[in-house]
Design a protein around this nucleic acid. Structure first.
Lengths: 216, 216
DNA sequence: GTCTATAAATCGATAGAC
DNA sequence: GTCTATCGATTTATAGAC
């Protein structure tokens, strides 16, 4: 409880104020609308001061990105409670897309902006370090597929990693298309997601002999 | 062959030069890198001159967008030759995504930029005018689903429009995720597309009774 | 630690000379 | 029809006073 501690505390507080102001701007107007001047106005400090707390604008973006990723994970964690592997996979698709629909600017920042921020979440090279938050969350989906295969809910062939990337990209498509070209889709986005997950899971559950076309 | 005609010809030529220069910039560096100054430098005219041929930067973007859409349609038309409705649907997914992979900046301009350009392709309100190029191309996919249903290749229930939007958004997901976060996906994008189309079509072909879970 | 002031670089768009 | 010149408004980031 000395002077040094107080200074550190105050420094951390202002840093948090900067992030809070930046988060509000990004959530309201998108990342490209985030400027040092706006942050300075919001926290009632000169723009120059911000550079004493963050290297540059990108560093703020990276930090916001990491926090938004935690937000996404918070959306997904309840799915872990679902025992039925088939329903768990459906829940993953639903929760992931719901995060996007309900937090459009956060989703934009995470997955629709320059990949520079993503790289902070995923390993820069192919280390696949399980400590990376992105890798950890993705592994959750992979495990769900593995469990579904083990339980016989879906076909045992097929690389779980590839399957996870397949549903991830497909779900991303519904969200990103909805966010970019809102009024173009005639069908309700949530209905598309449900149809998509159902169709994919049914396609994976199908015994190979039951398809209409067997050859040619 | 009078003076008036020559002037009109020259005017059209310069207009085309502007578009060619703009197209090259957008294809190389993306739409946000397109500036009137760069165009002026490229065609060796003052930036001010460009405003005599296009209202503003957005008008150039709209024109480029329309041309890129024709490019996309050129990728898709060969699929019309495929008689087998099941294979035609697979071909649609493959050709659509191939356009995106091979023409990333055009794809970005069409489907990953401000919706202002899309609106030039799709009806501004819900008129669904079949003359709109976007509506026309989308109808092509809808018709493919209708044909597949009629031929018994996929289940007869399910709105063809919703099905078309489902595969469209799913394919869009693979392309946009690949373009935005290239190195994040472990699986080859083309492999994801194939797996996705196969799985979806198999899911649609499945008789309802053959799924693993029948109730609960 | 914070500020003012400013550098240095953009940009879109326009007025007016020629 | 084209140009020069410029307005006016951005931006990020920094130098240096206090």
């Amino acid at each position: 409880m000395g002077i040094v501690e107080r200074k550190e505390r105050q420094r951390a507080e202002l840093r948090e104020q900067i992030l809070t102001a930046a988060r509000r701007i990004v959530l309201d107007e998108g990342f490209e609308a985030l400027t040092m001047r706006k942050i300075g106005d919001a926290i009632e400090y000169s723009p120059a001061t911000i550079y004493l707390y963050f290297e540059n604008r990108e560093a703020i973006g990276r930090q916001l990105c990491a926090e938004s990723f935690e937000h996404l994970i918070a959306y997904m964690t309840p799915v872990g409670q679902i025992a039925d592997p088939y329903e768990r996979l459906r829940g993953i698709g639903r929760c992931y897309t719901r995060f996007g629909f309900e937090n459009p600017e956060e989703y934009r920042l995470l997955f629709m902006t320059d990949p520079a921020f993503m790289e902070a979440l995923f390993p820069p090279d192919n280390t696949a370090d399980p400590k990376d938050p992105g890798e950890r969350a993705f592994q959750f989906v992979v495990d769900a597929f593995r469990a579904a295969q083990a339980a016989g809910a879906i076909r045992p062939d097929g690389d779980p990693v590839a399957l996870a990337e397949m549903v991830w990209t497909a779900c991303h498509g519904v969200v990103s298309m909805t966010l970019t070209c809102n009024h173009v889709l005639e069908t309700r986005p949530e209905a598309i997601v449900d149809m998509l997950c159902d169709t994919i899971l049914r396609g994976l559950a199908t015994p190979l002999t039951s398809t209409v076309r067997s050859a040619s």
